[in-house]
């Protein structure tokens, strides 16, 4: 029974990855269209040809548009809704449903929450990133981030399934606690919000660089100020979750290890990340730091999150050695 559920779960995850790949292609085409409405750039146009060879018939049809309706009229009168973006969103939703299904099945197979080791944590955290991305769409068009989100999640799921995969095993006594449900889940929520915030900061920096070069902004992508505000709102939510993770972790550590803070490597890195993002929030309130500097801090912060999850988990010694690898 368990073995069967595990197989279904993996099947769903692999299927989700395939659909995410389609979503990535569609969103990349959309990006190319957004850029080409101003001026066709070789680097941005490149994915179009790649996509043309790999995409299915459905998405090849989409190709016609950017080519034929192409860059005659530069300017912001690009329709906000393009077929490529719509297709990307549809693919993302389908992939996300498969993704969540696979994650839930994994939890059912294990008879517990699906975030007790690195593999499961990767499934859950990436599902949350996509979930937040989809939910935020309801009041804020973020489809220009679609390529980033789909690409990032695809890569992460790829690494998780090939490098982090572990069989379903029972929880060791140290993890048998209600705090596993809360602490780790909130950590993955925080990671999801930080990830999207970092994505917006990347786009912000790109826009700002274009501005510095005297180029116009990429049409139909918000201007840097707007991007910064959106990134800030997401990161602030991530920061609240991260603060909670830190505190819940301390309470759990007190229960399991007998002290609430012991400078364990994972505790150190959680603290470092917290401090960097606290710095980010202060940077936003400091004259001369708003703009590209605070955006860079947001990227450093998310870099630390990724470092904490991968390098610290795999290569550093400490009490949080639950990767299962």
């Amino acid at each position: 029974m368990t073995a069967q559920l595990v197989t279904y779960s993996l099947g769903a995850i692999y299927s989700a990855m395939v659909v995410y790949a389609f979503a990535f292609i569609a969103f990349t085409l959309d990006l190319a269209r957004r850029a080409s409405t101003r001026r066709v750039e070789v680097s941005v146009a490149a994915p179009v040809t790649v996509a043309a060879t790999t995409a299915t018939a459905g998405s090849t049809a989409v190709l016609d548009r950017p080519d034929s309706a192409a860059p005659v009229t530069p300017g912001p009168e690009v329709p906000a809704r393009s077929r490529a973006a719509r297709l990307g969103m549809s693919f993302t939703i389908i992939a996300w449903v498969l993704h969540v299904g696979g994650t839930v099945l994994r939890g059912v197979a294990a008879g517990r929450v699906p975030w007790a080791n690195m593999f499961e944590f990767s499934l859950t955290a990436t599902a949350i990133i996509v979930g937040v991305f989809l939910v935020v769409q309801l009041w804020q068009d973020l489809r220009f981030l679609g390529a980033y989100v789909a690409g990032f999640v695809l890569i992460f799921l790829g690494i998780a399934t090939t490098n982090f995969y572990v069989d379903v095993v029972p929880l060791p006594p140290a993890l048998q606690s209600g705090w596993l449900v809360i602490h780790v889940f909130v950590a993955s929520l925080g990671t999801g919000f930080y990830g999207l915030g970092a994505a917006l900061s990347v786009v912000q920096l790109v826009q700002q660089r274009r501005m510095a070069k005297g180029l116009r902004f990429i049409a139909s992508v918000p201007d840097p100020d707007r991007l910064e505000t959106m990134a800030y709102r997401l990161i602030v939510v991530g920061f609240v979750f991260w603060t909670f993770t830190l505190m819940a972790g301390a309470i759990w550590a007190e229960h399991a290890w007998g002290r609430y803070w012991g400078w364990d490597t994972k505790e150190v890195w959680t603290f470092i990340i917290w401090t960097i993002y606290a710095g980010y929030i202060h940077a936003r309130a400091t004259r001369g730091w708003r703009g590209s500097r605070s955006a860079t801090l947001a990227l450093i912060g998310f870099g630390a999150v990724l470092f904490n999850f991968t390098i610290v988990n795999l290569f550093f010694k400490g009490l949080h050695s639950y990767s299962g690898l």
């Binding site: 603290f271 470092i272 401090t275």
Partner: peptide
């Protein structure tokens, strides 16, 4: 703040 984050690294 940033210095504190940086200074915590060697200990890990």
């Amino acid at each position: 703040l940033l210095l504190l984050a940086f200074a915590a690294v060697p200990g890990s």
